[in-house]
Nucleic acid binder design. Structure first.
Lengths: 235, 235
DNA sequence: TCACTCAGAATCGTGTAGGAAATTTCCTGT
DNA sequence: ACAGGAAATTTCCTACACGATTCTGAGTGA
């Protein structure tokens, strides 16, 4: 159906956000920012007191976070934040990303409409080179990285792929592992290359660029301390 | 005793350990068995009364079901069961399955250990040909189908792929769409073919068998009633 | 007569407070 | 040093108050 019919009923605007949603986002931020350290106990009443609410919305938020596997629940013992990803789990995560994201990039190049391509360009325009080495600067760049990859998945036109990608919460896990490296000019140039391929409607190039991007990130981040070889700089 | 016919009364729950988990499973079963019809409103207090518990564990269960996208929440208006999958969504679901499951079958054939292969054989031994046309018979076969595909995903050795597959809840959605067809001797023979390829450590054959299995299921189930008209306007 | 509007009430979602059961911790006795 | 037990903490559930939404039905105007 044609979208953008004049005067058409756009979906009802988001109602007043509920407390449980705010609590949910707050806890997610606490986990991402290491305020709640990996494996730490998350007391329902403690969080409720700290946030100034009653335990019920905290319980609801934690139930959702448990479905997202950001916290784990031990019956009658409470919640704990999920531990940091092990080396094997990170490998596994990138293997999964390599399975779905290059595919998504190719599909995005194949059938992204004008509005989608404009959104992609806007996202690339909005990102600047990392200005400083502050925590907030890294966090802003990580947010761009998240939006970029979600957008590519969305442009692929498969809701299942987009949701499967989002539900990995891969950027949260990676940022939690090491928020102080891995994002820089190389990342941005690789994003630009993917964007160019999508805008050129070149599925093969888009898939290859995304694959190279993920492999570079995987290679660089999985071996953070070994500086034996300069990367192939395939990006 | 565990009758699961559609329209069955909601029974009281034998409290084992945690009420919220039982409520969660109970609601999931109610959705799958069409006791809660697609799009129907799910009243928190109503469910609490029918299950004989207080609203709090029901809210916790619904919060988790919302993360799994089995129910949708409209703020200040309550929960509704997710609508049935549209033709496009079902297409999308099978596209996603075709992306990850053949890959998983190949990996399972590559590196499934002895214990994993024994579990696969046991699952195939445990399933018999459909004995009757009763609802319970179909449901049992659907349960085997679920276990089989989850097991293949698990044998692939990638926790991300397994979770991504499980989180689609594809068997629940498909069963909800039409629980009265699509599973039969053909399904079992295709499962046997996949099993054989995995046991023979033949990744190429396993991948091809899984792909053929999904394409057959997709083709057969996507065109159950509109095989004559071809659906010119309506999806 | 019919359609529309608006007030009132019932209904339901949302958050709070409190109590029962279980686990953990710490202390004591041997 | 180790086993046993009681207090403290916490989880989990229930019961209740408040607010928003929706339904009902009477009233008004065309």
């Amino acid at each position: 159906m044609s979208s953008a019919a004049p005067g058409a009923t756009i979906g009802r605007l988001p109602r007043r956000q509920m407390l449980a949603d705010d609590v949910h986002e707050a806890i997610k931020a606490l986990i991402m920012d290491h305020v709640l350290e990996p494996g730490a106990r998350v007391s329902i009443d403690g969080l409720a007191r700290q946030l100034g609410v009653s335990p019920t919305p905290v319980r609801e938020a934690l139930a959702r976070l448990e479905s997202a596997e950001l916290v784990v629940k031990e019956p009658l013992r409470g919640y704990r934040t999920s531990p940091l990803l092990s080396r094997e789990q990170l490998d596994d995560l990138y293997e999964f990303r390599l399975l779905i994201e290059p595919w998504a990039a190719a599909r995005a190049a194949e059938h992204a409409d004008a509005e989608g391509r404009e959104r992609l360009e806007a996202e690339m325009r909005s990102c600047t080179t990392p200005a400083s080495d502050t925590y907030d600067s890294y966090k802003a760049l990580a947010a761009h990285d998240t939006r970029f990859h979600v957008l590519v998945a969305e442009l692929a036109g498969s809701a299942q792929v987009r949701r499967a990608f989002e539900r990995t919460h891969c950027h949260l896990h990676i940022f939690r592992l090491h928020y102080d490296r891995g994002l820089g000019e190389q990342t941005l140039s690789e994003h630009r290359r993917i964007t160019r391929a999508v805008l050129d409607r070149d599925p093969v190039a888009a898939e290859a660029a995304m694959r190279a991007h993920l492999e570079a990130a995987c290679y660089e981040r999985l071996r953070p301390v070994s500086e034996d070889a300069g990367g192939p700089t395939q990006g």
